[in-house]
Amino acid sequence: MTARLLQHPPATSVPGARTRSQWLVAAALCAGAALAQAAEPAAPAPSFKAGIEALGQVSAADLGLPIFPGARVQRDKPDSSGQVALGLWGGSMGFKLHAAKYSSRAPIEQLAAFYREALATHGTVIDCSSGKPVALPSSAASAPSDSSALSCDNKKPSVPGEVIYKVGSAKNFRLVALQPQQGSNSSSGGVNFQLVRMQSQGL
């Protein structure tokens, strides 16, 4: 094929007169274009990624909240980690859930003040301690655009004196639940508490 391209074509096959150098230039351009097309990688096919993960270790970075100083991981059973990380995704949709249980000997009022301040940096905090949302002052620069959709989701105290705070949006939120340990009161301390972070996309 190359030899035919480089030959001077008969005058009857091409309208108008052309010099041999013009045909050589045209042939070189055609060959270069063909090589460039062959060397160009094919466009990748659209990919769809899906997966699930379950882990027993959760960090403060995963929760997006600080751990109260001196708090210890609460294990309901000897072989329990007291922590869980779940993830499920497919394409552009998915969710991540991080949760951890801790215990502290500090008074519940001290933990409540600590986490009100920590949560307030993420938006308007709602107090679900009564089963109904009560907005608390916020120190965040801006609240999530759909913060108005945030609710207690029927979350009610499971034990007397439990304090429940929540911040974020309906699909992306942080939650803190503080429960006085049985047989203790606010003055003597003793608190079990849970930290939860939920993140979802496209759901």
Score class of each variant (00 low, 15 high):
Ala106Glu: 05
Ala118Pro: 02
Ala177Cys: 04
Thr124Cys: 02
Gly123Tyr: 14
Lys132His: 12
Pro133Leu: 07
Ser158Phe: 04
Gly90Ala: 15
Ser139Phe: 01
Ser148Ile: 05
Leu150His: 06
Ala120His: 12
Gly94Gln: 10
Ala61Glu: 15
Asp76Phe: 10
Gly123Leu: 11
Asp153Val: 06
Ala118Trp: 02
Asp79Gln: 13
Leu150Ala: 06
Ile126Lys: 00
Leu111Pro: 00
Val125Phe: 08
Leu88Tyr: 08
Arg75Met: 07
Pro157Lys: 13
Trp89Thr: 03
Trp89Asn: 03
Leu178Gly: 07
Leu88Thr: 07
Gln110Phe: 03
Glu109Ile: 03
Gly82Thr: 02
Ser158His: 07
Gly91Ala: 05
Ser80Lys: 05
Gln57Val: 13
Leu150Lys: 10
Ser138Cys: 13
Pro78Ala: 15
Val159Glu: 09
Phe68Tyr: 14
Tyr115Val: 04
Gly90Ile: 07
Leu97Gln: 09
Gly183Leu: 01
Lys132Pro: 00
Leu111Glu: 00
Ser103Trp: 00
Val163Gln: 13
Pro144Ser: 11
Ile126Val: 14
Pro78Cys: 11
Pro69Phe: 09
Ser158Gln: 14
Ser92Lys: 11
Leu111Arg: 08
Val84Phe: 10
Leu175Gly: 00
Gln74Ile: 01
Gln57Ile: 11
Gly161Asp: 06
Lys77Gln: 08
Val73Trp: 02
Leu175Met: 08
Ala106Val: 06
Ser148Gly: 09
Ser151Thr: 15
Leu136Lys: 07
Ala71Asn: 00
Lys96Pro: 00
